[in-house]
Design a protein around this nucleic acid. Structure first.
Length: 564
DNA sequence: GGATACAGTC
């Protein structure tokens, strides 16, 4: 081992031994070394604990003749970003500038990533714009990071915008960026565009990576195009890739969701034969698949298999098991899952609470309601505190309460927050608390949790997309959006040519052709005598023209329904 | 020497 490497290891050992303190400082100075920024950086990279990393970083700063460089600052900024300590991160970045250390492209890329992963997307875009003003030219990684962040937030159009910008800036897409965009189009439901890019990358001489194959296979499979998924799976093997855990997970999920959970089990065994070991997420997937198929015995069997194989249960796996029991109204078993979680030191997540909330619906037996409430009350999650204060608050306080709660949930994934919001709105709507449900909808729109729900295809075509929502959320969203459309028409004085209400026709529901959302929307529209109708081949889409729509919206009995 | 992607709770 080189002397340089040995020094780095000795420093790491000292740091790992104890909490940062006087003893650490003494031990470091006993080494009597003049560490270079390179070595400091190597040490920093190995630090898992943010506080310790920062103490070491500050200690280094005080060493005689030492000065941090762009690499060490960047690494430290990355560590703070990962810990979501933005106060310290801003402070350190300012210090970097003050010290005359010029941020590099990597520094900016890390900042963009740090803010974006914490859902501060606007801050990410501001940094991107700031780069231009200081003459730092964004590179492929910058664009790739922004594409990924916006894809994850569901802002697919913005992601495409960054892809176009990247090409205008003179960068051709590479394997990495192609994979990102294929994922983006797939997530946006544009399978054809995704596959077109896949073919384009091959034509351009960029070989698809294992990740590209996995992504494309997943999107084909989720869209029900199993022949294409299978073809790519074979192509992938022909290209010399061996399926990895992700490939196997994708296959298992597809099989499970199309009613072939036993085949999914076989894939897991095949995966083990191929030398991979099942981890908590893979076991969790089996628990989930059996649970969703209504077989709680098999779900718990796999859960126990996980424990016995020495894999520690994680929160998602527990949620899957909990969900399996709740689905069958087995509240005592559900309670035991919650107790086990607490015993294992696993904190219930927002999803745990969402599951319990979704179960509070459609129950008329007082005994079941009581059981549910006792389960929910057991959970120490901010969501429970929020819901309790929300249900008892003065109407004038509700909006600020909701806003504050979602502010506290800043770091949760969009999808998770959307799931909670959906259950909450559905629950409130179902309980007859329409006005409260409307407030929640307004705030989640304000927080961009449904970036694709209300869109304008062109200035003359407006649409609202309800097809992934629960019934209650879809109805609340529809009424609120109609109010919005009406206000737009009033202020602009212009009526759009077409207005679309997209409900889906049930492709995603268990029984094809039976969309509960569509039926609920249809009855509401019919009961109010609306001008919306099914037009053309899309059975899940209601259409109307702007002018008759405006007239209808101003009818007194309609206005009455819209005010809540 | 420092930075980016795929599956898995709903």
């Amino acid at each position: 081992m080189s002397v340089k490497k040995e020094i780095v290891e000795r420093v790491c050992d000292i740091l790992a031994k104890r909490e940062w303190g006087q003893e650490t400082v003494q031990a470091l100075s006993d080494l009597d070394l003049n560490l270079s920024p390179f070595q400091i950086n190597e040490v920093l990279k190995q630090q898992k604990d943010t506080e310790r990393a920062l103490s070491f970083f500050n200690w280094a700063k005080d060493q005689r003749g030492y000065k941090h460089d762009a690499h060490t600052y960047t690494t430290m900024l990355g560590i703070l970003g990962r810990a979501r300590n933005f106060e310290a991160l801003d402070c350190l970045f300012n210090e970097m500038l003050r010290e005359g250390c010029k941020p590099s492209i990597v520094t900016y890329n890390r900042l963009i990533h740090s803010y974006g992963r914490a859902n501060y997307l606007e801050a990410s875009r501001n940094i991107f714009n700031h780069m231009h003003t200081v003459g730092c030219k964004p590179d492929r990684v910058t664009y790739g990071t922004l594409i990924d962040l916006h894809t994850k937030a569901g802002c697919h159009d913005t992601a495409v915008g960054f892809y176009d910008m990247m090409q205008q800036a003179g960068y051709c897409p590479d394997t990495f960026t192609y994979s990102l965009m294929i994922h983006c189009f797939g997530k946006a439901g544009k399978l054809t565009a995704a596959y077109r890019l896949f073919c384009e990358m091959v034509d351009q001489g960029y070989p698809p990576s294992l990740v590209t194959y996995n992504t494309m296979i997943d999107h084909f499979a989720k869209a029900g195009k199993f022949d294409m998924a299978m073809k790519l799976y074979n192509d992938m093997k022909e290209a010399g890739y061996r399926p990895d855990q992700v490939t196997y997970s994708i296959m298992m999920e597809v099989l499970g969701h199309s009613g072939h959970v036993e085949e999914a089990e076989l894939v897991l065994f095949e995966m083990e034969q191929a030398g991979w070991t099942a981890d908590a997420p893979i076991y969790g997937l089996m628990v989930d698949l059996w649970g969703k198929s209504g077989n709680a015995e098999k779900a718990v069997e796999w859960f126990n298999k996980m424990i016995h194989s020495g894999v520690k249960a994680n929160v998602p796996a527990c949620n899957s098991l909990l969900s399996a029991y709740l689905r069958l109204n087995s509240y005592n078993a559900a309670r035991e899952v919650l107790q086990s979680m607490s015993k294992w030191g696993l904190d219930p997540s927002l999803q745990t609470y969402t599951l319990l909330l979704s179960c509070c619906k459609g129950t008329e037996q007082q005994q079941q309601i009581d059981l549910m409430l006792s389960l929910k009350g057991r959970i120490e999650h901010p969501a429970h505190t929020f819901l309790c204060s929300f249900l008892t608050s003065e109407p004038s306080d509700t909006r600020s309460l909701i806003r504050h709660f979602f502010d506290c949930m800043q770091f949760e994934e969009q999808e998770t927050k959307r799931g909670f919001a959906d259950s909450l709105i559905d629950f409130l709507h179902d309980s007859g608390l329409k006005s409260a449900a409307g407030h929640v909808w307004d705030i989640v729109v304000e927080k961009s949790l449904y970036p694709r729900a209300v869109t304008d295809k062109t200035p003359h075509h407006w649409s609202v997309n309800l097809h992934v929502m629960s019934i209650g959320t879809a109805l609340v969203a529809l009424l609120r959006t109609l109010v919005l459309f009406k206000e737009r028409m009033v202020t602009s004085g212009v009526a759009p040519e077409r207005v679309y209400i997209i409900t889906g026709w049930g492709r995603r529901s268990r029984v094809a052709g039976a969309s509960l959302v569509k039926h609920a929307v249809e009855s509401l529209l019919n009961s109010l005598g609306s001008p919306f109708h099914i037009d053309g081949a899309n059975l899940g889409c209601f259409v109307s023209k702007g002018k008759p729509l405006f007239q209808w919206l101003t009818e007194p009995q309609v206005e009455q329904v819209l005010v809540f």
